[in-house]
Design a binder for these strands. Structure first.
Lengths: 132, 132
DNA sequence: ATATAAATGTTATATTATTACATAACGTTA
DNA sequence: TAACGTTATGTAATAATATAACATTTATAT
């Protein structure tokens, strides 16, 4: 069970925006969209994003410098994330596949390193783009 | 068998630097280091980096905005990459584990999307940092 | 030789993210 | 409720990462 976090004002505004957008959003696009709500500076956005990432409400798509709302209600606070990214339309969706997450969470190689976190990004063409 | 690529002058200079460094390097640190060799502008660095990534001689560590020489002689031109990253000392190494790469290369979910590429980054503490 | 593609050089600028510092709101517990 | 510590906010400046646009040169393949 995930801990309830009471989002602050800025955190709520920014989370709602990302969540409603249904896809990944970039920090300065978020900034532009929330200026009418009084959030005027990049740092205000980045601080909210940092917190939202920390508590697992959003994830950063590293290869795109963009942020997406967590689509996985049982998300383990961003410790194990996987995304599929269409290289044509840039659609992103979160993969929740228990076999995959088990496999990766338990993965260990011969380095003797124990991994506490991973992020996986798959790339390809989505159905729509493939059929064009 | 990997195709031989004849690196251009700038590409060679930049690849050699990254390769000799033994770890990930950031673009502007590369720029600083090659200025004595006549490479003066960011774009010259980024162009060489783009090409080196394209042909699989280096990989980008997305979560760190850094570039590392491919440590895997049989690397499939950057279509399938996995790294382990120490969150304390920032040491990065490329994971080459055939089971893992087979598993991920063949992975497909119920989206009907066929993935042509993936990048996986594991995070944790390396042996040295763990024992501190 | 000549056409074509690839690489280079240069300037300017766009995009992404953080530092530093001051203030306000919130939550606890004495 | 007052005092304290923590978290969040506001604001300005700047650092770090990356690309656009354009001119020229070098390499490669007929």
């Amino acid at each position: 069970m995930q801990k309830e976090h009471n989002l602050s004002k800025n955190q709520k505004i920014i989370f709602d925006l990302i969540d409603k957008s249904g896809g990944p959003m970039k920090a300065y696009s978020i900034l532009f969209n929330v200026q009418k709500k009084g959030i005027k500076a990049p740092l205000q956005v980045y601080r909210a994003l940092d917190k939202l990432v920390e508590i697992g409400k959003i994830h950063k798509i590293e290869s795109r410098n963009a942020f997406i709302a967590c689509q996985n209600s049982s998300c383990q606070v961003s410790k194990a994330t996987a995304f599929s990214i269409c290289e044509s339309c840039e659609n992103v969706s979160e993969i929740s596949n228990s076999k995959l997450s088990k496999y990766l969470s338990n993965f260990s190689d011969d380095s003797g390193m124990k991994y506490s976190k991973y992020n996986l990004e798959f790339f390809g063409l989505c159905k729509k783009c493939k059929s064009k």
